[in-house]
Simulated assay, not measured.
Amino acid sequence: MQAHNKTVVKSMQILTLFLNYPKLTFNEMMELSHIPKTSLHRMVGSLEEMGFLTRDEEGYYSLGLLFLQFGQLVSERLDIRTIALPIMKELRDDVEEAVNLIVRDANEAMYIEKIDTLQPVRLYTSIGRRSPLYAGDSRIILAYLPEEEREAYIENTELKPIAMGTITDKSVLRQSLEDARQNGYTITSSELENHTKAISAPILNSQNQIVAGISIAGIDARYQENRLPELIQKVTNAARRISLKLGSQM
């Protein structure tokens, strides 16, 4: 374990050199890092293979495009939180339900912002909480992923029951995802916690790709059938407002 930790530390030492230098040769990296040639050669090769470093025709190394993707993702998520927060507060005050902002994190969803309800009975949802993409309000993200990604996720994921309403049949899940894309929202019942309901809608970026979901959630007694159309309209409108600020043409 310690050997692995040392490798990670030294790899980070190499990468941080590029905070001050846009391009470096192998010899320059060796001189600046003081890492032995053999070790440096092995680590640089691994970093290049993984996409963290790239080498041009003249032998100069620079940070790979993978860092650009990470940077865009971090920036996008930070921008979403900044843009979404006032709209989330308006939505909470309007419908008096908890409002969540959810993003994809690998094969899970993560709550990155929350405005709590003022109701005395509340759900347990906190910033940083994770949930599977197939269950609850997170499913809106899965619904809007590209078809190949969506299908690969379904094929490789065991649908485990979490609460009494969790979908555990893959054919039912596929139909639910199709309905979500057709309708532009999801309504889920008792999928992450019993006796709860959530309504979620997609947030899209300038390429009309899914980057997040916004949802309201609470105890199911507050989501009567005659109230659902109004709640759906307010959630989808909030999602649309955030998407437009991110450059979406939806």
Rank of each mutant, 00 (worst) to 15 (best):
L244Y: 05
A238K: 03
A198P: 00
K245G: 03
G128M: 03
S126C: 12
H34Q: 15
P146K: 00
E149R: 08
T16V: 07
L91F: 12
Y134Q: 03
E58D: 13
E113L: 06
R55W: 05
E147K: 15
Q175F: 14
R240N: 12
V211W: 11
E151I: 07
Q209P: 00
Q13H: 12
I203M: 01
R42P: 05
L91E: 08
H41S: 14
I80P: 02
G165N: 01
M88E: 08
D220S: 12
I203V: 05
I115Q: 11
K160C: 05
L53N: 09
S206Q: 13
L177A: 01
Y61M: 01
T16Q: 12
L244V: 01
R150C: 09
R92V: 00
D93H: 10
N183E: 13
I219N: 10
S243P: 01
N208F: 02
M88N: 00
E158N: 07
E147W: 14
H41V: 06
S189D: 12
L192S: 07
A106D: 15
E178Y: 10
G71T: 04
T82D: 09
T236A: 02
S206N: 12
L15P: 00
I87C: 00
I115L: 08
M12D: 07
Y223Q: 01
E155R: 13
K89W: 00
K6R: 10
S75V: 03
S243D: 06
S62T: 04
P202W: 09
H41Q: 15
R129Y: 13
I83E: 05
G165E: 02
S46G: 07
M250F: 08
E76F: 05
E155I: 12
V172C: 05
N205I: 10
A143F: 09
Y124C: 03
Q249D: 08
E96V: 03
R81I: 13
T157D: 02
K10F: 07
T38M: 12
S171C: 04
I80Q: 03
L63H: 06
L246Q: 03
Q72T: 06
H195A: 14
G64E: 07
M1P: 10
K10E: 15
S190D: 04
I112P: 06
L228H: 01
E76T: 14
R222S: 12
V99W: 14
M30A: 14
M12Y: 11
P229G: 03
I102L: 10
H34P: 00
N205E: 08
L68G: 11
E193R: 06
I80A: 03
I214S: 06
R174S: 13
Q175K: 13
L65C: 07
P229F: 11
L231C: 07
I112N: 10
S131K: 04
F18K: 06
